[in-house]
Amino acid sequence: EVDTLELTRQVKEKLAKNGICQRIFGEKVLGLSQGSVSDMLSRPKPWSKLTQKGREPFIRMQLWLSDQL
């Protein structure tokens, strides 16, 4: 189980620290539009309420944070 709230907090922190905009992060890392990324980072759904497809971007965020992506 992933703590989506904590994960998105860490992602936002790393984006800010490295000067990466959400649009680029969305396109290059998540394969999503800036609007989708913005929504996901500001209002993450609980892991238990996400479908497999809904969980994929959060898994990619985890990999990106651990420099595996």
Rank of each mutant, 00 (worst) to 15 (best):
E1D: 02
E1W: 05
E1Y: 02
V2S: 13
V2W: 08
D3M: 07
D3Y: 03
T4A: 03
T4M: 14
L5K: 15
L5V: 14
E6V: 06
E6K: 12
L7R: 12
T8H: 06
T8M: 08
T8C: 12
Q10P: 07
Q10G: 15
V11L: 04
V11Y: 03
K12P: 05
K12E: 03
K12M: 05
K12F: 01
K12R: 06
E13G: 06
E13N: 09
K14E: 11
L15K: 14
A16I: 03
K17N: 13
K17L: 10
N18C: 03
N18L: 15
G19A: 03
G19V: 02
G19Q: 05
I20Q: 06
I20W: 09
I20L: 12
C21E: 12
C21A: 12
C21D: 09
Q22K: 10
R23D: 12
R23N: 14
I24H: 13
I24T: 14
F25R: 01
G26M: 07
E27F: 07
E27D: 07
E27Y: 06
V29R: 09
V29A: 03
V29H: 02
L30I: 04
L30A: 02
L30T: 01
G31N: 09
L32Y: 04
L32A: 04
L32E: 05
S33K: 14
S33M: 15
S33P: 14
Q34R: 15
Q34L: 13
Q34S: 12
G35Q: 15
G35A: 13
G35L: 12
G35C: 06
S36P: 10
S36A: 15
S36Y: 11
V37P: 03
V37W: 11
V37Y: 04
D39K: 02
M40F: 06
M40Q: 04
M40W: 14
L41C: 02
L41V: 01
S42P: 07
R43D: 14
R43Q: 11
R43E: 08
P44F: 09
P44H: 05
P44D: 02
P44K: 08
K45E: 07
K45T: 08
K45L: 13
P46F: 14
P46K: 10
W47M: 01
W47K: 00
S48P: 05
S48V: 04
L50T: 00
T51R: 09
T51G: 08
T51S: 11
Q52Y: 11
Q52T: 14
K53V: 04
K53H: 06
G54C: 13
G54H: 06
G54Y: 07
R55Q: 04
R55T: 03
R55C: 01
E56M: 06
P57V: 09
F58T: 00
F58A: 00
I59L: 13
I59V: 10
I59Q: 14
M61H: 00
M61K: 00
Q62G: 11
Q62C: 04
Q62F: 01
Q62E: 03
L63D: 15
W64G: 00
W64K: 00
W64E: 00
L65K: 01
L65G: 00
S66E: 11
S66F: 06
S66L: 09
D67N: 11
Q68W: 10
L69W: 08
